[in-house]
Design a protein around this nucleic acid. Structure first.
Length: 275
DNA sequence: GGATGTTTACATAGCC
DNA sequence: GGCTATGTAAACATCC
């Protein structure tokens, strides 16, 4: 049984790159989506080494966020004040670490400029609609499952006790996207493998075999506070906790699909489970 | 003014 | 040696 990460390195510098640390923070958050300040906080909480010289490493981290295509900036709701944006991982970037290990990357993750432009355009379109209402009002308040830090979340809010009917209409977002951006060339969802990328476009219903997400399921409850042990492994986390990607992001970049949760979850093959 | 985000430049290390 | 990934520093712009 691996020991908790917090107790592993003490004041010593952990063997993770800034990219890894940032990915760790994002992956560990319930929504796989964090503002910069929360990324800082996660790293400082988990690794005491980074509680000092904050200016230095935080500058480096910001550089990495901007420089590396594997990180996607999600603007805040335009009608809601707040500093900075949310950051998440590019869905294809989950594959950049060898065997899911954060200690070593296969190669630098790059997105073609055209795809980047389309993604940014779609993200902006999505953001101006309703995505950020949901994020600002509910999801970000659940970061690290610390209700005490929430300014306006009901104190008794509990994902585990939240039925699908009680959840905000998150699934409506792709509908908005499909009505506004269908004229753009959209690459359909597919796994990030050579075989998959070279394969013909799927023609049958991609949602075959998918089942609707149960928000009261044990998996959903687990997402509220996923454990954080070493070795941290993307594949392990995906297998155990049905790693998902914010549906508005996934759909906005790789085609509009119904928001379904696939069971059992697959990591590299098949669509990422979303809610 | 401080936090956030972008960009450029340079250094270092590892791999081929 | 060339290439790539990573780390660091710094300047600058933008936003709240």
């Amino acid at each position: 049984m691996p020991r908790p990460l917090k107790m592993t390195y003490g004041d010593q510098k952990p063997p993770y790159s800034y990219i890894s640390l940032t990915a760790m923070a994002i992956i560990h958050s319930p929504q796989r989506l964090l503002p910069l300040s929360e990324i800082y906080r996660f790293i400082m909480e988990q690794f005491p080494y980074y509680r000092k010289n904050t200016q230095k490493w935080q500058n480096s981290l910001r550089h990495n966020l901007s420089f590396n295509d594997c990180f996607i900036k999600v603007p805040r709701n335009v009608t809601k004040a707040g500093k900075g944006s949310y950051w998440t991982l590019h869905p294809m970037a989950f594959d950049m670490f060898e065997n899911g290990s954060l200690l070593r990357r296969r190669k630098r993750f790059r997105v073609k400029q055209l795809e980047k432009d389309i993604s940014n355009w779609k993200l902006a379109a999505a953001n101006t609609e309703m995505v950020s209402h949901y994020l600002d009002d509910q999801l970000t308040q659940m970061a690290f499952a610390d209700p005490a830090r929430s300014g306006h979340m009901p104190s008794n809010f509990d994902l585990g006790n939240t039925s699908a009917a009680q959840m905000p209409t998150y699934k409506a977002v792709p509908t908005i996207l499909s009505s506004t951006i269908t004229q753009l060339p959209v690459r359909p969802k597919r796994a990030f493998t050579i075989e998959s990328l070279m394969a013909p476009e799927p023609t049958s219903a991609a949602s075959e075999g998918l089942v609707p997400m149960d928000f009261g399921s044990p998996e959903a409850v687990a997402l509220k506070k996923p454990p954080f042990n070493l070795p941290f492994n993307f594949n392990e986390l995906a297998a155990q906790y049905h790693l998902y990607f914010p549906s508005f992001l996934y759909n906005s970049q790789y085609g509009n699909m119904p928001c379904y949760h696939k069971s059992p979850p697959l990591f590299h093959n098949g669509p990422l489970p979303v809610f």
